[in-house]
């Protein structure tokens, strides 16, 4: 894996210079801090609407929010982050290939595997940081606004959410390797996201897809039975590794 650390250093610098790290941090922090706030404010907002002339609309009764609502809101908001992960990483390799930057680095005494793994490792590390930031923010605000949270369950839920994000990171890197340009890589990433979402809605298959795992986390938060969560996590983990191996195989044979 010659060149892994130099590539990692460059990737980290790139994440900072191109403001991707900032975007990631702000988005995760907003999800973490905003979710309990939205849960808290929702009844107020709804009752304010109810006082207005609703023009024949039915009255909606909203129960008082608690820890459960705050965490469900967090889960709902977190479910949008895979798209952000895809958008931030889908051009990572495709852009460097199309701009002819990658060939200049890959003719040096480095391995293509090191190049790809650095592209995966640094965003994965930053996504882990983002997840921790988001979870900490949510935990703090939920505790302040609604009371104590089951920390162990919440930690497990976040570990699974992080695994889902890793899967989408691997998917976007795979798209970035196989596509000739950024637009087509984005097509692969977003198309893949759509396919996984559809597969996650299919009965029988839903529990064994990353999208199904994401839904399963909601059950974990609600305290429902989560028999298939382990299988979902295993499939998501294996799919992540498989996508990275496939990307590496393609990249190692690719002509640049």
């Amino acid at each position: 894996m010659t060149g892994f650390l130099p590539f990692c250093r460059k990737e980290l610098l790139e994440q900072i210079r191109t403001h991707r790290l900032l975007v990631l941090a702000v988005a995760f922090l907003l999800v973490g801090l905003g979710s309990p706030l939205i849960a808290k404010a929702t009844p107020d907002l709804v009752s304010r609407f109810a006082q207005d002339d609703l023009g024949g609309m039915e009255l909606v009764i909203v129960r008082d929010p608690g820890v459960r609502e705050a965490l469900l809101q967090y889960h709902k908001n977190f479910a949008m982050l895979p798209l952000l992960v895809i958008l931030l990483n889908v051009g990572a390799i495709a852009l460097e290939k199309s701009r002819r930057i990658a060939p200049m680095a890959l003719v040096k005494p480095v391995s293509r595997r090191a190049y790809l793994l650095a592209k995966a490792a640094v965003p994965a590390l930053l996504t882990l940081g983002g997840t921790l930031l988001s979870a900490s923010g949510c935990l703090l605000y939920t505790t302040v606004l609604f009371g104590e949270v089951d920390a162990a369950g919440f930690a497990l839920a976040n570990a699974l959410l992080f695994l889902v994000l890793l899967f989408y990171l691997a998917l976007s890197l795979f798209g970035s390797v196989i596509a000739p340009g950024v637009a087509s890589a984005a097509g692969v990433g977003i198309g893949g996201f759509a396919l996984v979402s559809i597969a996650g809605a299919l009965p029988g298959l839903d529990d064994y897809t990353p999208a199904g795992l994401l839904s399963g986390v909601a059950d974990l938060i609600l305290g429902r039975a989560t028999a298939h969560l382990g299988a979902g996590a295993l499939v998501t983990g294996l799919a992540t590794v498989a996508l990275l191996i496939a990307a590496q195989q393609v990249l190692s044979r690719q002509e640049l």
Binding site: G3, P6, F7, R9, K10, L13, E14, R17, T18, R99, R100, I101, P103, M104, A105, V107, K108, P109, V110
Partner: peptide, 30 residues
């Protein structure tokens, strides 16, 4: 590759890097 130097027809660089940083990165790769 350790003993080889190569300049492509249209050299392209990370636009966010400075010239000095790019050479340091290449030095790092070596």
């Amino acid at each position: 590759r350790r003993r080889l130097g190569y300049l492509p027809q249209d050299p392209a660089f990370h636009p966010w890097m400075s010239g000095e940083e790019y050479l340091l990165h290449i030095g790092d790769l070596f």
